[in-house]
Amino acid sequence: MLLQTTPLAAQGFAGLGADADGFAIPHPGAVLEFPADHGAHPDYRIEWWYLTATLKGDDGDPYGVQWTLFRSALRPDDGTGWQTPQLWMGHAAVTTRDQHHVAERLARGGIGQAGVTASPFAAWIDDWEMKAHPDTGISELTLSARGETFRYELALSAKGPLVLHGDQGYSVKSADGQASYYYSQPAYDVSGTLFLPDGPVEVTGQGWLDREWSTQPLSPDQTGWDWFSLSFDSGARMMGFQLRDSGAGYTSATWIGPDGQSQSFSDGALDVRPLKTERVSGRDIPMRWRVSLPDQGLDVEVAALNLNSWMDTSFPYWEGPVTISGSHSGQGYLEMTGYD
């Protein structure tokens, strides 16, 4: 989700398949280090801190929350003041059964308007903030954001270990070998308050934080992705994605047991197939999916809570909470990009 102003042909969704000379490239065998890797990596071109939460209100209704901070670099150095090449974009959303509230912020990092510190951890853009309690890494967080029609204030407490995707955090994205560094904290307990047009709602639920950075994570012919974070009533979880191209596409998955132990699955192990498409914001978008991971006995149907969870932002995409039924039950989040 680069902050480019003009889409370019054959460069993947949002330019993520474009060459970027001079930037660092992920390599297998690198060892992720914490808390340092909770912070920014300005020698890589793109990066994000991405939190989703599936919640239940004291009114009995389901809710979804998103908070995302993106960093995009114009050149591979940090710079100072207005001369910094680091650009920042924030997305926040609250989803209900019949409403989807969205806000976006844009910033330059060198003037303090947006940024990330690793220890103590804090990520912010304007008055939106994801912040850790002192000496807790990212295991204890507070989260806040606001838009014209909503605001939220949440507290998050991790109940499991960090999960490294792919090969110890080296996550391959294509048959050509494009890759990113990618880890998650998928097991937050969440509580707090949503402030909506009809009034405040106290909520509790589960949160999932994704961290990813790279320079060219897509091949030029990859036009978008379908990404699933699924939390099952059994206590297990799964992250899976399909990157779409002119052929069969590319898939990857991570299965996380109730004890937090994880197993990665490479291309072809995960199968995702659209079952029902709806017209959303002038686009035909799959709203019901069959997701299967035979090695774990998973065969489920994933359905959107609110069909109209369209993120009408600088790079528009669909993002919202989902329900899970079939061999496993539960709830999760789905992100779909590149649907024109």
Results as ranks from 00 to 15, higher is better:
213 W>A: 01
16 L>G: 12
246 S>N: 15
141 L>F: 00
145 A>R: 06
6 T>Y: 14
235 G>C: 09
92 A>V: 06
158 A>Q: 03
212 E>T: 11
243 L>A: 10
204 T>C: 08
281 S>E: 15
317 Y>M: 02
13 F>C: 06
267 D>G: 03
205 G>A: 03
187 A>G: 07
275 L>V: 02
175 A>T: 09
4 Q>N: 15
46 I>V: 14
157 S>F: 01
239 M>R: 12
187 A>T: 08
127 D>N: 14
223 T>K: 02
44 Y>Q: 01
180 S>E: 04
269 A>D: 03
252 S>N: 15
183 Y>H: 10
195 F>L: 15
131 K>P: 07
159 K>C: 13
325 S>M: 09
48 W>E: 06
284 D>M: 15
330 G>N: 02
15 G>M: 00
124 W>Q: 10
12 G>Q: 02
128 W>E: 04
118 A>H: 04
183 Y>L: 08
327 S>K: 13
210 D>W: 14
126 D>M: 13
93 A>W: 02
221 D>V: 10
203 V>W: 02
306 N>G: 05
93 A>T: 05
175 A>R: 13
320 G>F: 00
253 A>V: 00
230 L>P: 00
237 R>E: 07
97 R>W: 03
193 T>R: 12
112 G>W: 00
297 G>E: 11
126 D>T: 14
23 F>K: 02
170 Y>R: 01
185 Q>P: 04
259 D>K: 02
262 S>W: 01
199 G>S: 05
145 A>I: 03
141 L>Y: 02
143 L>A: 04
238 M>Q: 01
3 L>W: 15
199 G>D: 05
276 K>C: 13
91 H>L: 07
36 A>V: 11
65 V>G: 04
1 M>H: 13
6 T>W: 13
102 V>Q: 08
30 A>Q: 12
46 I>D: 05
93 A>P: 01
271 D>M: 13
131 K>Q: 09
213 W>L: 08
92 A>P: 08
158 A>F: 10
113 Q>M: 11
211 R>H: 10
287 M>N: 08
216 Q>P: 07
50 Y>V: 12
117 T>S: 12
2 L>H: 06
213 W>D: 01
137 G>L: 05
125 I>Y: 00
72 S>A: 09
17 G>L: 00
122 A>Y: 01
21 D>V: 06
287 M>C: 11
125 I>T: 08
248 A>F: 09
283 R>K: 15
310 W>P: 00
149 T>W: 15
170 Y>T: 08
248 A>T: 13
196 L>E: 07
194 L>P: 10
10 A>G: 12
102 V>Y: 05
